[in-house]
Design a protein around this nucleic acid. Structure first.
Lengths: 150, 150
DNA sequence: GCATATGAATAAGAAACTTAGATAAGTCTG
DNA sequence: CAGACTTATCTAAGTTTCTTATTCATATGC
């Protein structure tokens, strides 16, 4: 029972594990009073900034006017800034501000602090197995983001 | 570089990997036109049904009147049913219907179908590493759900 | 240089959530 | 076992956030 199947990764089992895990992980409480969608935009910008408003419309699951509103709200809170795109007069480049980065970092720190004591209760082999899988998760995200562009 | 650190699982690295992965995974398109919160309730019920309305209020990140509305909408769509709790006349037990289970299953099948070709592009060791980590994800969720009750 | 296409903003309306309060069933005390 | 208190849910009113439809401004192709 301790043998790992050579190539035995069932997609359905991955989906089940990820969804189960997220059911717990997603509900870790938030730091500020920002809506789910607003936070999603801020996190997207934390990965790569600046982005055009239209790019944000593509990644978030909302309409373009909604993104305009969300960016306006984030701008009023000082978490992002709008700048003209020098290469295209129609476009707007949305930049995350240091304050915006702080919000994202604080949220991440909060979740790390909550998950750390749980990880401490795992066995050494469990932690090792998880650590070995992390680069794979990154790789899947990379492959998936590329495929989503099609 | 192929040695795994004995107990080297940094919580921050887990958080980073999970969030990166979710950034891709969460955006896999939905089957129906149900809001994020409504789907969350339906998925919670898919795990264990029936549940009291108050239990749903506790797990979802919204107020109790919001859950009442969400359940009412799901009921109108025939995805859940309300039944009185025989052991407590005040309480309502929310049951998922076969149609509701179908929606959850269809969404999961959709995501599985989209992630399967990506998994096919991984190497054998990558798939093995991921497969070995899945039970650990389940275990963390289990530990976390228990701790959340405190 | 005019017609069409594209990126973002605006306006009006609909959907979904919040706070506050009502209703009804259960529990506890004397 | 009657009254006060608590608990579970619903209802009502108002706010926030989203959508569809449209406009404005810049870019591009012929």
């Amino acid at each position: 029972m301790q043998e790992t199947p050579r190539s035995g990764l069932d997609p359905a089992e991955l989906a089940a594990a990820v969804e189960r895990f997220n059911g717990f992980y997603i509900r870790l409480p938030a730091v500020r009073r920002l809506s789910f969608t607003t936070l999603s935009v801020l996190h997207t910008l934390a990965e790569r900034s600046p982005r055009r408003l239209g790019e944000l419309t593509a990644t978030e699951q909302v309409t373009q006017p909604a993104v305009t509103q969300i960016v306006t709200r984030l701008e009023q809170d000082g978490l992002v800034e709008r700048h003209p795109d020098p290469s295209d007069g129609r476009a707007v480049l949305v930049h995350i501000t240091p304050a915006g980065e702080e919000v994202v970092a604080a949220r991440r720190a909060n979740r790390v602090a909550r998950i750390a004591p749980i990880l401490a209760r795992l066995t050494d082999p469990e932690r090792a197995a998880l650590a070995a899988a992390l680069p794979v998760l990154h790789h899947i995200a990379e492959l998936g983001e590329g495929a989503a562009a099609s």
